[in-house]
Structure formats: structure tokens, C-alpha cells
């Protein structure tokens, strides 16, 4: 059994604290994800999947509880430290792609490397290689608005891989795509998991796609109602 890379310990998330519309979205969630796992998180809309994912991705902080990443407690980290960890250890793939408009695919992929301080030449070479890997080498100088949904998502996977992070977080990556292109994206994820050993956390609506993974965590109303497959089996 390998090391635990993501450890969520009694995490609570409450929005609008102290206000009239204060609302607890996540209730004492506990998850332990090992290195190299491919985990699917499923649940109905509004269940709190994205909220959980944002906490895992260090984009948001839990209201209570502890989140340990790679054995390091993240509770007291400063914003710039969190930026650094996101930059080097986590790759994001969003449902809405979140590519920067009017910036070429190549430049978009280079971005995380630029913030890491990698020299221009080196990062261009790496970005080209990554785009090649996702089959986008013929559209490197296209801007996002000149790409189809599937193409945009492939660019954003290449971007997520830029600094060779251990973890890929994908929030409904196929949600805006048709089944065929969705399939293609899923294949890339499988490849990244199998060949590159990436830990992947995938949020999806589709039971079918979830079945392909090692482990399925089902969330309902901010609680984990089932967690099966993977190492438990």
C-alpha cells in the first residue's frame, strides 16, 4: 500500500459565516487518497463536489478540520505558499476550460512554468511536448476562441501537466463535451494515471465514466454516503 497523498480530516465548509444566509455545505468530510489513485467523486448537482475539490486544490480554505497534503498540514499556510504548492504539485482541469482568452494555446500551457520561473526556451520546448502529447501540436498558435471544446480541454490538460504535478484535479472535465470527445479526454486521464503515475481526482456526473476509475466517492448534501472500490476492495 502506497503513501497517502491527500488526507481530508473532518473538513467543514461554511459559506457566508456570520451572515443571515450562513450555510454549512460540507459536513465533517474525511477522505484519504493514496498516491497513484484514480478517484471519481460523484453526486447530484449542489452536493458540494466542487466545494470539496476547491479545498483539495488549495483554492479555498476549510472552515474547520485539517487538510494534509503530502504529509504537510496546509491549515496555516500563507497565500503565496499556497500559490507555490498549486503551481508545482496540482494540475487543474475545469469544466469551463478556464484558458486565458486571446493568448495562444502554447502561451497558456507555458503559464504555470512562467510563474515557476522556468526560462523561456525551456518552457516553450516543454509546452510543445505537452501539446504533442494531447494531440494538439498542430494548433499551438491558436487562441482559445479558435478551438473546439474538446481541443480546449486537451490544451488545459497539457497546461495542468506543465510543472509535472503529482495530482490532477478535474472538475467535470467532460461536462461541456459530447460523448466522443469526452471519451478522448477520459483516455488521456487513464494514460496519465497508468503511464505517468499521476494521482487523479475526477468529479463527474456520469456513472459510466466513474465506473472506469479505481474508486468512487459519492457525496450527497455535503456528506460522503459511499466510498467503494479502489484499495478497499
Amino acid at each position: 500500500m502506497s503513501e497517502s497523498i491527500i488526507r481530508i480530516d473532518n473538513v467543514v465548509k461554511t459559506f457566508n459565516i456570520g451572515m443571515e444566509n450562513e450555510l454549512e455545505i460540507l459536513h465533517k468530510i474525511c477522505i484519504d487518497i493514496k498516491e497513484g489513485e484514480f478517484v471519481a467523486i460523484v453526486g447530484s448537482s449542489g452536493a458540494g463536489k466542487s466545494t470539496l475539490m476547491n479545498i483539495i486544490g488549495l483554492l479555498d480554505k476549510p472552515t474547520a478540520g485539517r487538510y494534509t497534503l503530502n504529509g504537510i498540514d496546509t491549515s496555516n499556510m500563507k497565500d503565496d505558499e499556497l500559490s507555490e504548492i498549486r503551481n508545482s504539485q496540482i494540475g487543474f482541469v475545469f469544466q469551463t476550460f478556464n484558458l486565458i482568452p486571446r493568448m495562444t494555446a502554447l502561451k497558456n500551457v507555458e503559464l504555470p512554468m512562467m510563474y515557476k520561473g522556468i526560462p523561456q526556451k525551456e518552457r516553450t520546448a516543454k509546452a510543445k511536448k505537452l501539446l504533442e502529447m494531447v494531440g494538439m501540436d498542430d494548433r499551438m498558435s491558436h487562441q482559445p476562441n479558435q478551438l473546439s471544446g474538446g481541443q480546449k480541454q486537451r490544451v488545459s490538460i497539457a497546461r495542468a501537466m506543465a510543472n509535472d504535478p503529482a495530482i490532477i484535479l478535474a472538475d467535470e472535465p467532460t461536462g461541456a463535451l459530447d460523448t466522443v470527445t469526452g471519451r478522448m479526454i477520459m483516455d488521456i486521464f487513464h494514460k496519465l494515471n497508468k503511464e505517468n503515475g499521476k494521482t487523479i481526482v475526477l468529479i463527474t456526473h456520469s456513472r459510466e465514466l466513474a465506473q472506469e476509475t479505481d474508486r468512487i466517492i459519492t457525496i450527497s448534501d455535503g456528506k460522503i454516503i459511499s466510498d467503494k472500490g479502489g484499495y478497499e476492495i
Partner: peptide, 10 residues
Amino acid sequence: GIRKALGAKT
């Protein structure tokens, strides 16, 4: 937001 998510510091 995207830039920050990708690791841009303040």
C-alpha cells in the same frame, strides 16, 4: 483567478 490557480503570487 486562473493565474492565481496556476500559481501566480500576489
